[in-house]
Amino acid sequence: MTRATLARLFAAIVVLTVVIAVPMTQIHWDGTQASSQADQIDTLLNVMIVLSSFVFAVVLVMLGYCIWKYRAKPGDESDGEPIHGNTKLEVAWTVIPTVIVLFGAIYSWIVLGDIETKAADALPVNVTAQQYKWTFNYPLPNGQSVSSNKLVVPSGRQLDLHLTSLDVIHSFWVPEWRIKRDLVPAGEGGNDIDNTVRVTPDRLGTYNVVCTELCGFGHATMRALVQVVPSDQFASWLAKQPRVKPQAGTATGSSTGSPSEYSNGSPTGGP
């Protein structure tokens, strides 16, 4: 291959990379950003889209070039050049992808650390799932709590969500927040399940909690309303809600399900 062909192929790869990457990064694939975590995750996604576009462009250009250039003429039954390999090239396409994916790993690790950092003033909310409904419980300083079937939260303050399931595995997801975590049923001792997830809503509006772990025939419609409101509005909403006295043994915040609730949910699940 001549130097000029090589340059033309490289140019084609660059052009195709730009053609794919520019529109792909302009579209907000993940939809509305409504948490302070969302922006970092979407930026990571966009960086990956650019790198992926390059890799995909390399494959498409080389494939297209070979089909165009080396397609056998009708009747040509001879063999191609007996090239068995090229050590330099093979080392290159081992090392370069390794560097790219390790960059991706370190970048992801940094983003993960950032989005999971706990804020000092985080608002604790206990989230309880059961077939097929959500319950949100706000512990109050005086030992009482507020229970609601919609998640009303103040804007701009980190939420410290404690997740519990009463029957099978469910999963808490608000697409606009980009945050998801399974709610795992656990017995005494909790089986070392990481049941805390943090997110900082920063955009006023109404969203949905979507259950994303198959939990039975009602899985598709297992949703709850999320309202992100200004913090003074949240305070007045909370003040207006009826108080519930927590039962013994549930004050730790890691579990909102009272013992009697456990026996209501069928431990084996199923319809």
Binding site: I41, L45, M48, S108, W109, L112, S171, R178, K180
Partner: peptide, 13 residues
């Protein structure tokens, strides 16, 4: 992309 934890958190399931 799915292998990267922050992206996977959003799009898994």
């Amino acid at each position: 992309m799915l292998g990267m934890v922050p992206i996977d958190i959003h799009v898994s399931d």
